[in-house]
Design a protein around this nucleic acid. Structure first.
Lengths: 145, 145
DNA sequence: CTTTAAATGAGAATCATTTGCATTTGCATT
DNA sequence: AATGCAAATGCAAATGATTCTCATTTAAAG
């Protein structure tokens, strides 16, 4: 959980002008425990008494992603894009297909696989996206009941 | 490349009424060498002289996916959904971030990884999605020139 | 050949996201 | 502290993919 001053500094050091909306959105993402979509960020900020405009939230998210302060996460069967604070760590997501809870996974087993693929296909591989789907412990119980 | 009769049989054996549009869409997917989006399928069919409606293409794709004859593929940074004929093989995609060409990959290295995840997280894992991004041989050359 | 439920066409509706434009604001400079 | 200006914002309208409504057509069961 970063202070107001830290957020401002983070923005400036990434070449972004520091504004009320940007500070708010960045602060929200930084303290969020899960990726959130624009509408949700918008709603939560309003609930906190910070009047931002939805377009501004979208624009801010775009800027933050542009400078690497946020990351856009697009999941299958999810109509809208999610965003998270970007600590520049490579990660994957484990998504509950029932309650939609998302937990990040830091272990990635694909390094060697990518090398093999490069050799076999002649592609120059720049990255990958892996999401795992299933039932979280709670939903597993419920679906059995 | 399946015959008209084979397509009809495929539809019926999956519990779908056989109609002109469905036969056309299924036939297109079956002979396509890459996943295609609804608009493209629509355009190509019209170009072949088959007058289908775009809504029908969407509805047909939904039905086909519903009975397992097609598969929806959602890629990052791709505004629209893609669809492919479903031969029920588990596969991943290697997508050129430059020309958007997509090649399917049949080798999947994630079986063991999923088991480890189940143990560590208590989730019941039902599946995953892995897409790999990079430059295809041609685009690799171009970007260097 | 009827019948009937399901499929289709045409266009309106929806939903997330983007954009145009007038107004405001950060912030560097007087 | 006041000024200027480009960048950021608010608002409403535009967009693009997809879905829905409803009147009409069609597949295929009887």
């Amino acid at each position: 959980m970063k202070s107001r001053a830290e957020l401002a500094e983070l923005l400036r050091s990434h070449g972004l002008k520091c504004t009320r909306s940007r500070e708010a959105v960045l602060g929200y993402l930084e303290s969020a425990c899960q990726p959130a979509d624009a509408e949700r960020i918008y709603a939560e900020l309003r609930a906190m008494g910070i009047a931002v405009n939805l377009s501004t939230v979208y624009r801010t998210l775009e800027s933050l992603c542009g400078v690497g302060l946020a990351k856009k996460v697009v999941l299958e069967n999810e109509g809208r894009a999610l965003f998270e604070f970007c600590d520049s760590a490579h990660r994957h997501y484990l998504v509950c297909i029932c309650c939609k809870k998302i937990i990040p996974i830091t272990f990635c087993p694909l390094g060697e696989y990518e090398q093999q693929l490069e050799q076999r296909t002649g592609y120059e591989i720049t990255g990958h996206k892996l999401d795992v789907y299933g039932y979280c412990p709670q939903c597993k119980k419920i679906s059995r009941a």
